[in-house]
């Protein structure tokens, strides 16, 4: 079984994007996502697409990796764009019964496709360039204000760290269990969807049992290392806002201003 999941994988490097503060990266990602959804015409979308391409080029990660991350959701892209083709209003170019394809429908499909692609690319850029620990650390710090609402911010971040740590371990274990069950004559390849899902039961049960045992042992190991929750804890890596981060924030603000201006001055096409 291939374990080549591009989505959410960290690729170490020294690029500008890699060196940015993880908190800033997270906030800018949110800003980008909002921008992508708030661009109402092709000019503003063009600006964002340009910005996303610039970020990707700056991240110094091969375009192949980004294409891989798109591959995962290609079905979603196809379905939404096909649906949108039929949603336009105006004079039909082609008509099959009640279904009609219009110029505005095609525009709309292209628009939505570009939006989704931008969204995936910019989010993958964050996970590609930020180590899981930095990421959870950043989330912990950004969510700190939520402590007032009695949300256990540190615990959530800790759970994310551990989950990320154990994903490869559990995947490996799944492979082993599958091999063991196959060796005992389990048939996991043939049959339809339902049969295949049913065939996973003898894999999932041992996997769950072992996950619980691991969890118990990990808890013991953590206690042995004096873990006592988030209070009084320090961190080896202190996140610091550098000049680079300020520059990146300024650039993003410029893009933001550009998009807003374009939204006002160019008529919404769709």
């Amino acid at each position: 079984m291939t374990r080549d999941i591009a989505l959410g994988q960290f690729i170490p490097g020294q690029s500008v994007i890699h060196r940015m503060d993880a908190r800033v990266k997270n906030l800018l990602l949110i800003a980008f996502i909002v921008l992508i959804f708030c661009s109402f015409n092709f000019v503003s979308l063009g600006i964002i697409t340009g910005a996303v391409i610039a970020v990707i080029l700056l991240s110094d990660i091969s375009v192949k990796m980004y294409l891989k991350s798109l591959k995962v959701i290609i079905v979603i892209i196809l379905i939404t764009s096909i649906l949108n083709i039929f949603y336009g209003s105006g004079d039909p170019i082609v008509q099959f019964g009640i279904f009609k394809i219009t110029l505005s429908g095609i525009y709309r499909a292209i628009f939505v496709t570009v939006r989704i692609i931008c969204l995936i690319l910019i989010s993958s850029c964050l996970t590609f360039t930020t180590s899981p620990t930095d990421l959870t650390d950043a989330i912990e710090r950004l969510m700190k204000p939520l402590k007032i609402l009695h949300i256990k911010v540190h615990e959530i971040a800790m759970m994310m760290t551990i989950a990320l740590r154990f994903v490869p371990t559990l995947l490996e274990e799944t492979d082993k269990i599958m091999a063991a069950q196959k060796a005992r004559g389990a048939d996991m390849e043939s049959g339809g969807m339902i049969k295949k899902i049913k065939a996973m039961t003898p894999v999932l049960i041992p996997l769950f049992v072992s996950a619980f045992r691991r969890a118990y042992e990990l808890a013991v190991a953590m206690e042995c290392r004096c873990y006592q929750g988030g209070d009084g804890r320090t961190r080896m890596k202190v996140l610091k806002i550098k000049k680079l981060d300020v520059a990146c924030i300024l650039v993003t603000v410029l893009v933001l201003a550009g998009v807003i201006l374009c939204n006002i001055f160019f008529a919404a096409k769709i």
Binding site: P132, T133, T161, R165
Partner: peptide, 21 residues
């Protein structure tokens, strides 16, 4: 396998002293 907490070796080693403040 069940004693390592973090996804990067050095961060895992730092876990103990971090807990100690």
């Amino acid at each position: 396998d069940n004693q390592l907490v973090a996804s990067v070796i050095e961060e895992d080693v730092a876990f103990g002293p971090e807990n100690l403040g």
